[in-house]
């Protein structure tokens, strides 16, 4: 009985992964085949990127400040406050920048995408697109995926730069660390490899967030585990946020292990 239950659970997971895989294949296929719609892409860049800048700036500033505060408190015990700049730079570039930006984008954009597409599914709007001869993958998903891949790295860069200034404010202005040593040490410690790691992570995270969020909304009708209407939209939105967040943290470890 237990073995049978395990088999059913495993087959359900495999089916869901298969459906998600086909969904991504269709979206990427539509992305590569003309015609391309620049208007749809710009609309999504505005939503995923431009409208997320403020929240990313605020988050980056406070994260940079708190990192500087924590590192200052630790480094001062060892008399190595000159290393503050490199500690802030490395932690933001390699880990905190990509991961926290991704988590902010999940909360602001991923959840909204999932709910919007889920509502379109229950209101027959996706069926209407199909009946008009418009491929919903090309019209709805591909521009979002491309916008995610383009915008999340840029948002990550903004997060890192603002975070460094937050660290500068706490370290140099509040605790009198030398500005020259702060930036010189950061310049020496942060290598191109670290920037590439941050960039690679943010590109992968951008793809994962949009893929998971859109797939959950788009395939709402295939999910037989609960209600279909408004309750269904609320359930899959929560699911999308939880699955995206866990996937980001897991893939962060995986990418770090692969690149280091």
């Amino acid at each position: 009985m237990r073995l049978q239950l395990k088999k059913i659970m495993l087959s359900n997971i495999l089916i869901r992964l298969g459906i998600a895989g086909i969904f991504l294949y269709e979206a990427i296929r539509s992305l590569l085949i003309p015609p391309y719609s620049i208007n749809l892409l710009l609309k999504q860049i505005l939503f995923v990127g431009a409208r997320s800048v403020l929240v990313i700036v605020v988050a980056g500033l406070f994260v940079g400040m708190v990192i500087a505060l924590q590192f200052y408190d630790t480094l001062v015990r060892f008399g190595s406050i000159s290393l503050l700049g490199s500690a802030v730079g490395l932690s933001l570039t390699r880990e905190l920048g990509p991961v926290l930006t991704a988590l902010m984008v999940i909360g602001r954009t991923g959840s909204a995408m999932c709910a919007e597409i889920g509502i379109m599914r229950i209101d027959n709007q996706i069926d209407a697109l199909e009946c008009m001869g418009i491929d919903p993958h090309r019209y709805l998903i591909s521009p979002r995926i491309l916008a995610g891949i383009l915008c999340v790295p840029i948002l990550t860069a903004i997060f890192i730069v603002v975070g460094i200034f937050g660290g500068y404010f706490v370290g140099v202005i509040l605790f009198d660390v030398s500005a020259g040593s702060f930036f010189q040490n950061m310049n020496d410690a942060v290598l191109n490899r670290d920037l590439c790691m941050g960039l690679t992570k943010s590109i992968v995270f951008g793809l994962l967030i949009v893929w998971i969020s859109c797939e959950r909304g788009f395939n709402l009708h295939l999910d037989k585990s609960g209600a279909y209407g408004s309750e269904g939209v609320s359930r899959i939105t929560t699911e999308a946020v939880v699955i995206s967040s866990i996937t980001i943290l897991f893939s962060d470890y995986l990418l770090s292990a692969l690149i280091l």
């Binding site: 199909e130 008009m132 001869g133």
Partner: peptide, 16 residues
């Protein structure tokens, strides 16, 4: 999709 361009569908809710 090509075939569907030759048909029209008016949904119950309008589906706008």
């Amino acid at each position: 999709y090509k075939l569907r361009k030759r048909i029209g569908v008016a949904f119950q809710s309008g589906a706008l």
